[in-house]
Simulated assay, not measured.
Amino acid sequence: MANRERGDRILTDWNRVFDALADPSRRYVLEYLHDRTQPVPVWELAIALAVRTTDRPANQVDIQIVEQAETGIVHVHLPKLEAANLVESNGETITLTDHAETLPLFTPAYRGIVRPAASEEEDWES
């Protein structure tokens, strides 16, 4: 019986990870955090996400777009990423957890999970 409970817990944990990875914005958050050595302020992450979604330089992104990105990060993306134990937040900064670093999300063989190759991304959009 104990093995079944452990198995159910592991499956629940993986379901949370897959749920977190299902959204391109959350995958981008993970990629952005992975490429940094220090915790990232929520506002900086919101700017980066706004730049990515609008395809404009940071100084040309409307402040309302950045504020919408910040709201999405705080109220949608962070809760899912935290539930999957992929990020930690103190309310002002965000960082990857040790658990996220141990998953094969950032290894060369699995890099496509978080950062798909351009040709693969185009295939998905077709």
Score class of each variant (00 low, 15 high):
Ala2Lys: 10
Ala2Asn: 12
Asn3Ser: 15
Asn3Ala: 13
Arg4Asn: 12
Arg4Glu: 13
Arg4Val: 11
Arg6Cys: 00
Arg6Pro: 03
Gly7Asn: 14
Gly7Thr: 12
Asp8Ala: 08
Asp8Lys: 14
Leu11Ala: 09
Asp13Ala: 13
Trp14Thr: 12
Val17His: 01
Phe18Cys: 05
Asp19Met: 02
Ala20Arg: 08
Leu21Asn: 03
Ala22Phe: 04
Pro24Glu: 14
Ser25Gly: 15
Tyr28Asp: 11
Tyr28Arg: 14
Tyr28Gly: 05
Val29Pro: 02
Leu30Thr: 11
Glu31Ile: 02
Glu31Asn: 06
Glu31Ala: 09
Tyr32Ile: 06
Tyr32Lys: 12
Gln38His: 11
Gln38Ile: 11
Pro39Tyr: 06
Val40Asp: 08
Pro41Asn: 14
Val42Ser: 07
Trp43Gly: 00
Glu44Ser: 10
Leu45Gln: 12
Leu45Met: 13
Ala46Lys: 12
Ala48Gly: 13
Ala48Cys: 11
Ala48Val: 14
Ala50Phe: 06
Val51Asp: 13
Thr54Asn: 10
Asp55Val: 07
Asp55Ser: 12
Ala58His: 12
Ala58Leu: 05
Asn59Glu: 15
Asp62Asn: 07
Ile63Trp: 04
Gln64Ser: 08
Val66His: 07
Gln68His: 06
Ala69Met: 08
Glu70Asn: 04
Glu70Gln: 08
Thr71Gly: 03
Thr71Ala: 07
Ile73Ser: 03
Ile73Pro: 01
Val76Arg: 15
Val76Pro: 01
Val76Trp: 10
His77Met: 05
Leu78Trp: 08
Lys80Ser: 02
Leu81Met: 08
Ala83His: 05
Ala84Gly: 01
Val87Met: 08
Ser89Arg: 12
Ser89Gly: 09
Thr95Ile: 07
His99Phe: 12
Ala100Met: 11
Glu101Pro: 01
Glu101Cys: 05
Pro104Asn: 04
Leu105Asp: 04
Leu105Thr: 10
Leu105Ala: 07
Phe106Ile: 14
Phe106Gly: 03
Thr107Leu: 06
Thr107Met: 03
Pro108Thr: 15
Ala109Asn: 11
Ala109Gln: 09
Gly112Ala: 05
Gly112His: 10
Gly112Trp: 03
Val114Asn: 02
Arg115Gly: 00
Arg115Ile: 06
Ala117Trp: 02
Ala118Leu: 04
Ser119Pro: 05
Glu121Gly: 05
Glu121Met: 10
Glu121Lys: 12
Glu122His: 02
Glu122Tyr: 00
Ser126Tyr: 04
Ser126Arg: 13
